Simulated scan of single mutants.
Amino acid sequence: MSNASGSQSSTKAVVHGEDLGHGNSPAAWTCVFIMLIGALVSSIAFAIANSPIFWAGVVIIGIGLVVGWAMRRAGYGVGGSKLKNTH
């Protein structure tokens, strides 16, 4: 039997009890904080029609992504080696 939209159903089982982590880590929080600052800078620059400052805000958002990625690689992401409790 075919679906009217043309898509096929997935055969993967969904596990609802699995803990996803939701990104609660120093890497994620730092990434989001830096990106929010970049969005604020870009938003203000857009409102005052200042292109160079707008693009500086976009660059800050990119820096936030790189910092988050680097911190995750350094072990500060969800389940990272720096966050494991060894007591």
Rank of each mutant, 00 (worst) to 15 (best):
F54E: 11
A4C: 09
Q8H: 12
H87V: 04
G23S: 12
E18P: 08
G75I: 01
A56Q: 05
F46H: 10
G17Y: 08
F33E: 12
V14M: 13
L40F: 07
G57L: 06
W69H: 08
V59R: 09
K84H: 06
A28L: 09
T11W: 02
S42R: 15
V41Y: 07
F46M: 12
I34F: 00
V14A: 08
G57S: 12
A56T: 04
V41C: 09
G6E: 02
G79W: 03
I53V: 06
K82Q: 13
F54Q: 10
A49F: 07
S81Q: 14
G75K: 02
I61K: 00
G64C: 03
S42V: 01
L83Y: 06
P52T: 01
G57F: 02
M1T: 06
C31W: 02
I44A: 05
G23A: 02
W69P: 03
S7G: 13
V41M: 12
Y76I: 09
V32I: 06
I34D: 03
R72F: 03
I53L: 13
I60S: 07
T86V: 14
G75A: 02
T11K: 14
H16G: 13
I48D: 04
G21Y: 00
M1A: 07
L83G: 05
G23I: 05
G21T: 02
G77F: 01
R73D: 11
M1V: 06
T30D: 01
N85C: 05
